[in-house]
Design a protein around this nucleic acid. Structure first.
Lengths: 349, 349
DNA sequence: TCGTAGAATGGAAACGTTTCCATTCGGATC
DNA sequence: GATCCGAATGGAAACGTTTCCATTCTACGA
C-alpha cells in the first residue's frame, strides 16, 4: 500500500506519465491547467518520487560517500559537519562509514560505495594502499582527499590544513618566549605522513632560529593512550631541564598534561605545553591550552564543494592540480609562558 | 566506459543474464563449470553490480537513515559510531544528516530519506512535530527513536538511557556525602522533555531523602554557552552557601566549572560539581569530573539492531512495545567531596 | 525402453523513473 | 487559404537488476 508510483499519479490526473514527470522535474513545457491537475493528484496521493528509478535512468544518484577514520574524533566530527552542511545545501545525500585507519576496511567501504553508485567520495585516506584509490579514479567517480594526501596519486583534488605553518608558528612562538630546550612529542614513523612532516618542520624551524635540536628531546609514541602517556612521562623524567613541549596531536597533548600533573609540574610555570590539534576542551583545561587549530568544518565544506563543483560529472573532483591549503591558527591561551629563571631539577622526581 | 553491466558479463561468459544473476546472488542452482566461467568473466571485466538496479527490483535498499541533532556533540558522535559498527557488520548503508534540533529541517531530512527509499530511520527526534514521524510510520518504513521519545507515538521502537536512574544515583551520592543545599542547573522548559524529567527526578529524589528543595537552587538556562555561564555564575553568587550542584548537560557542567574557577571556588573543597552527561574531557578536567555516563555507542548499536532485526521488512522497527532502557553509570571521579565545615560566604564575591 | 523428476539454463517481465520521438493542435506568417 | 512553427502531450524505450516461467537435458527408477 505504501508505494504510489508516477503511473498512479498520471492515472489520477488523467494525463500520461511523461507529463507528470515533466511537471515534477520542471523540464519541458506543460500548460498551467495540467500542471495544477498533476500537482493536486500528487499531493492527494502523497506521492514521493523514487530516487531509485530516477537514479537508474539518469545515471547519477546525488550520493556522496564519506570515509573518515573515526567519527568520535572531534576533528573528524567537525569535518563531517562541514561536509553535511554543504551537501545538504546542494541536495546531496551523504553516505558515511569509518575506516578505523585500516586499509582493508577502507577498501571494502570504497567497494560498497561504488556499488551504491555514489557520485563521488570524500576521504581522509589511510596510508599505504594506493590501489584502492586508483580503482576509484578508474571508475570515473569523483574523489577528494582531505587532511591527508596519497603520494602515489598526485593531482587528485585535496583539501589540507597548513599544519606545517602551524608547527612553524608554534615553534617560533615558544622560542620567542625564550625557550631553548623544546621537546617534540610525535607519532611513530609508521604513522601518517603528516606526523613525520610535523617533526621535520619542527626540526627545520628550530634550526632556522639557531636553536640546536637535541635528539633526546624528540620522542615518538604509538597511537595509544598508554604509549603516549609513557612517552610523555619518561620525557619529563629523563630531561627535567626541558622548558617546553610541542605535542603533535590532541592525544599526545593530553598525555603531556596528565604526565606533568602527575609529576607536579606546573603549567606553564615549570613547563610550557603547546598542542598541534584543537579540541573542544582545550579551553576548559586548567590552564587553557595553547594550540594550533585546523579549520575542520571549513575543510569539510570545501571538500564537498570541490566534489560537487567539479566540471564534468564523471571526471568530477579529479586532476585539479594543486591542493587547497587552508590556514591553521595559533590559538594562544595560557599553557605557554616565558622561561623562568627557576630550575625545577630538584622537583623532577 | 565505466559501467559494465550484467549483460556484458553474460555475453563475456557466454550465458544468459539470469544465470549470471544466480551466480552472483548465490540463489538457484548453477553448475560448477558455469559458475567458474561467470566469476571469471565478472572479475575480468571488473564488474560491480549496481545497487540501483537491484534495489529497484527487490524493493529494498539496505539503506539506514540516521538523524541526529549535531554530529559534533560527543554523545551523538559515539552514538553514530555504534550505529555504523552495527550497520557495517550487517551490510547496511548509513545515510546521515543533522537536524540542529530544528523540526523543519528534521522533516525535510525525513522527506529526503523517504525519497531515497531507505529501509528504516534511526532518529534522536526533536520535540513537537509528531506529524513527521506519523508520516514515516504510515510510509511503512522502519523507525527507531533513540535518546528521546515522542510522546504522541507510543509503542515505537525506542532505545533510551536510564537518565532518571542516573540523576537519582547522583543525588543520592551527593546527599550521602552530607550535602543538603544542592543546586540543579537545567534547561529551559521549552527544551527536550528529558531535561524536564531530570529536574523532576532531582526534586523527587531529594524529597525522598528528606532534603528540602529550595526553589532558588533550581535554575534553568537557555541552550547557549552564554546563558549557561550566566545561570551558573549568578547561582554561585546568589547562594554562596550552596555546597553542590548537579548540571543536567555537559554544556551546563562546563559553565559551572568555568564559573566556579572565575569566582575562585575550589572544586570540590568549596563546591561539589556533578554532571549528567559524560564527555571525553571529563577525566582531563582538573579535577576530573564526577559524571553520569550514558552508553552512547551501545545505544547506537542497539538502535540499529532493533531496526535490522525487526520482524517484517515493511513493518520493521515499529510497534515494539516498551522501550529498551540501557543503564547509565555514575562515574565517580574527583569533583565531588564531603561537605566541609568551612563557610565560604566571605569569599562569595 | 519409457516416463519423469530434477538440475541447469535462458527469455522476458517487472521495478519507477526520464527522455526521445511522434503526434496533435492552435495560431501566426506569407 | 496554405504552410509552418512551437507548445502541449502521450507512447515507448531505456536504465540494471531479480525472478518467474518455460525449456532442455541428464539420469534414474519402473
Amino acid at each position: 500500500m505504501a508505494s504510489v508510483t508516477i503511473k498512479d499519479v498520471a492515472a489520477a490526473a488523467g494525463v500520461g506519465v511523461a507529463t507528470v514527470s515533466r511537471v515534477l522535474t520542471g523540464t519541458g513545457s506543460v500548460s498551467a491547467a495540467t500542471r495544477a491537475k498533476v500537482l493536486a493528484a500528487a499531493k492527494n496521493l502523497d506521492y514521493r518520487p523514487s530516487a531509485l528509478g530516477r537514479s537508474l535512468k539518469t545515471q547519477r544518484t546525488g550520493g556522496i560517500g564519506l570515509i573518515i577514520p573515526n567519527i568520535s574524533d572531534p576533528f573528524c566530527a567537525d569535518f563531517t559537519a562541514g561536509v553535511l552542511a554543504c551537501a545538504h545545501g546542494q541536495g546531496g545525500q551523504v553516505l558515511i562509514d569509518v575506516s578505523h585507519d585500516d586499509p582493508a576496511i577502507e577498501a571494502e567501504i570504497v567497494e560498497r560505495f561504488a556499488e551504491q553508485r555514489v557520485d563521488g567520495i570524500i576521504a581522509m585516506p589511510v596510508r599505504g594502499r594506493p590501489e584502492t584509490w586508483k580503482s576509484v579514479a578508474s571508475l570515473g567517480l569523483g574523489l577528494v582527499f582531505a587532511g591527508r594526501t596519497v603520494e602515489e596519486l598526485p593531482g587528485t583534488a585535496t583539501v589540507l590544513a597548513d599544519e606545517a605553518g602551524g608547527v612553524r608558528s608554534v615553534v617560533e612562538y615558544l622560542v620567542g618566549l625564550g625557550h631553548r630546550r623544546v621537546a617534540f612529542l610525535g607519532g611513530r614513523p609508521a604513522e601518517s605522513s603528516t606526523r613525520r612532516e610535523h617533526e621535520s618542520v619542527f626540526r627545520a624551524t628550530l634550526e632556522e632560529l639557531g636553536v640546536a635540536v637535541e635528539e633526546e628531546l624528540v620522542v615518538r609514541a604509538r597511537p595509544t593512550a598508554d604509549s603516549a602517556y609513557a612517552a610523555a612521562a619518561s620525557l619529563f623524567m629523563r630531561r627535567p631541564d626541558l622548558t617546553a613541549v610541542v605535542a603533535a596531536s590532541h592525544q599526545l597533548g593530553e598525555a603531556a598534561v596528565l604526565a606533568s600533573r602527575e609529576l607536579n609540574l606546573r603549567i606553564p610555570a615549570d613547563v610550557s605545553i603547546a598542542v598541534v590539534d584543537d579540541v573542544p576542551w582545550s579551553e576548559l583545561c586548567d590552564p587553557p591550552l595553547t594550540v594550533v587549530s585546523r579549520p575542520a568544518q571549513d575543510m569539510g565544506y570545501r571538500a564537498c564543494e570541490l566534489l560537487l563543483r567539479s566540471p564534468g560529472t564523471r571526471e568530477g573532483g579529479r586532476a585539479q592540480g594543486r591542493p587547497v591549503v587552508l590556514p591553521t591558527e595559533l590559538v594562544v591561551r595560557a599553557s605557554c609562558g616565558p622561561v623562568t629563571g627557576s630550575t625545577r631539577t630538584a622537583r623532577g622526581r
